[in-house]
Design a protein around this nucleic acid. Structure first.
Lengths: 168, 168
DNA sequence: TAATACTTTCAATGTTTTTTGAAATTTCAA
DNA sequence: TTGAAATTTCAAAAAACATTGAAAGTATTA
């Protein structure tokens, strides 16, 4: 396979993949494009490569920066801004985990706390099932929270090297 | 908080939560509803509780059954079918992980395999970055694949009890 | 077997999300 | 300062996705 074709393939698949995970297709594609480009790209480069509008490009780059996945680069002698993505995939994964934890897991745990102390007779089957389900989710959520915190601080070696052995 | 209100809250939040993870809102809500109901519900029960149409209900129940999260129950003496969800959250999580791995991670790894042997001079900076990025993702993906396989087979105790200690 | 209860399908419709592009704003070199 | 280059905004348009409901299909029982 030629490089150009492989790049296209990667970008389009990364985009499709993203949509299954609640990530906007264009955002995932821009990320993919920056991941596989050695040098930083300008907004115009990205627009041209992906055939998308200026506004769309701008919004999604911003979003990627908010997620901590892309950096704005100022090249000396250039008026334009350039953009580049972190290439170390382990760092990328940790960053995504960190953000999703903050945006989704933490609020969910807060909600479960409130729902846990529902009024009513605990002997009532419906109250019981509700409370038990909510508590069960909270318990696992808290554990996931702790585990992910540790993962976020860990080195890749830890994950790739030792995890499997420890679990067996 | 009253049970009715808490249920509503849980269902609606679970639905919103789902949309952030590429899961259709209604599907997540039906799942939530079945999770917190001690007894199985019929299609009509679900339609009424969530104010959704027959077709929508039917399609999303089916999807939940495909995901292995909901079971069809035949109650003796009843003509209708009833539905119930697995209440053990650890089992639910493992089932979701198993399915998403099959549907998303496995195909992604297959793709990366193909992209890895792109033609071209490895000294070319662009070829080099492409190959390195793809290989990096593949390496981490394979590790995740193995780790998740172990997780799928594990008991909850393992996760809740020992994981943290091992990681420290 | 026929009548009835229940389930499934899917074209049409509605809703949400994404994208566009032109106008407004900001930046910076001269 | 000024004004050209670059960036940002956002209302409107397009695209993607979800939902409806009536008709077709199936299973059950009298």
């Amino acid at each position: 396979m030629k490089l150009t074709e492989a790049k296209q393939q990667f970008i389009s698949s990364w985009g499709a993949f993203g949509t299954h995970w609640g990530i906007n297709r264009t955002m995932a594609q821009i990320h993919a494009l920056l991941l596989i480009n050695a040098d930083p790209l300008s907004q115009d480069d990205i627009m041209e490569e992906l055939n998308i509008s200026r506004g769309n490009t701008n919004m999604n780059i911003r979003e990627l920066i908010n997620w901590g996945l892309v950096d704005r680069i100022i090249l000396t002698g250039e008026r334009k801004e350039f953009f580049t993505a972190e290439k170390d995939i382990w760092k990328v994964v940790k960053q995504i985990v960190k953000e999703r934890k903050k945006r989704e897991l933490d609020p969910m745990l807060k909600l479960l706390d409130q729902l846990e102390d529902v009024e009513g007779d605990k002997r009532d089957k419906n109250v019981k099932t509700f409370v038990e389900t909510v508590s069960g989710i909270k318990k696992l959520g808290l554990q996931a929270d702790r585990t992910l915190d540790i993962m976020i601080k860990a080195e890749e070696n830890w994950f790739v090297g030792n995890l499997v052995k420890l679990f067996k």
